[in-house]
Design a protein around this nucleic acid. Structure first.
Lengths: 203, 203
DNA sequence: ATTTTTTTATTGAACGTTCAATCAATAAAA
DNA sequence: TTTTATTGATTGAACGTTCAATAAAAAAAT
């Protein structure tokens, strides 16, 4: 069986199996034996390609972080995204992208949030992501609002997005994407409305 | 040593030790041996008073849920809380009560959110709490807004509160309570402002 | 008032299980 | 022949639970 260039294939398989295992039985019971079985390989292969379970978990977290960043980047790269409002909407849409709004990914996010409190490497990854969301939002609010107001608005919108996300993950019926997006849009409008009497709107 | 009526004392001790252990090493490494050692008792006593580790975790979650409910209830019981705005502020203040906004409790919340995805008993507890926050908020918005608007506003405020909470828990510098409360207050004002042209304000 | 019995509280060693990691063995491809 | 890929049994550590043993207090009996 062994051919060359198996590494990227196996890594993808095992990361996917990790996500599915976490969705299925939770991170606490996502053992390497279970993950390996789900991926259709032996347990030993995990240590071989990831150095150990910790390495697999870090790679899995990097994967979903990258997917989120990519979902946002793709929306923002579209030609018709120019005004602050359009950029903020693109960020919102990216965060509620279909690839992010499913039980598998949401359960994994929750698990990683919890674990990252006690693992510096995961904590670093997670904070880079938090900062990126805030900074992106803040940048576009600053195009219409004075800096302190923009920062406060950015904190509010970031919290709104994460909060809708969290409550969606915990709710039995899952997240209502359209309703969540609308709430985030509304929040943006409220903040931009304050700009009319304070600073020029380039929206 | 053994005196009568030790049960409530030991239960309190062990729940406190559980919170501290989770804060210290995370839920995954909060073993009964460690928890017992921190409480200054033997490991066997946990099964004796809680039936097992699962029982201890459920009791610990009940405790922090009760603390949160109590913090909100105390604020709302004050004489000067009458108008919808005052009630909503009381709910916000309760959720950012000092007893809730500390690293120990926040880490425990994160851990329980994650674990409750795979344990029906904890999931039930957690959802009762979510619903309570939403229902309380919704009730008071309905005193000034048409029902659909009130429900949407309630979803927004609940998400804002949880989101501020989550980002506060994950942030290296912790949560800025005053800033968080102000953002929630501002959101309430925006929602109530829409009521002026649609329904009478009793605020 | 003293002794005996019962109840409640607690310990910690022992047990069986489960886990991540290791590594010698194997096999296909280069 | 060398390199890359993979297996799965083995190992040792760590875990939650159990339980016989112990001790103090309370209750009952003398």
């Amino acid at each position: 069986m062994p051919k060359l260039g198996m590494q990227p294939i196996r890594r993808r398989q095992l990361i996917q199996a990790t996500l599915e295992a976490i969705d299925d039985v939770g991170l606490a019971d996502a053992t390497i034996a279970r993950i390996a079985k789900r991926a259709g390989v032996s347990a030993g292969i995990i240590s071989h390609y990831f150095g150990g379970k910790d390495g697999l978990l870090e790679s899995t977290m990097r994967q979903i972080l990258w997917d989120l960043g990519d979902a946002v980047a793709r929306r923002r790269a579209r030609d018709d995204v120019e005004s602050p409002r359009q950029h903020l909407h693109a960020i919102i849409d990216g965060n509620f992208d279909r690839s992010q709004v499913n039980k598998i990914v949401m359960k994994t996010w929750l698990a990683f949030w919890s674990v990252s409190m006690h693992r510096p490497d995961l904590q670093r990854l997670q904070r880079v992501n938090d900062r990126r969301l805030y900074s992106n939002i803040c940048h576009h609010f600053q195009r219409c609002l004075p800096r302190p107001d923009a920062q406060q608005a950015a904190r509010g919108l970031a919290a709104m997005i994460d909060g809708l996300w969290l409550r969606g993950a915990l709710a039995p019926q899952g997240i209502d994407v359209d309703r969540a997006r609308q709430l985030a849009y509304d929040y943006v409008e409220e903040q931009l409305a304050h700009a009319t009497t304070q600073a020029p709107i380039n929206a």
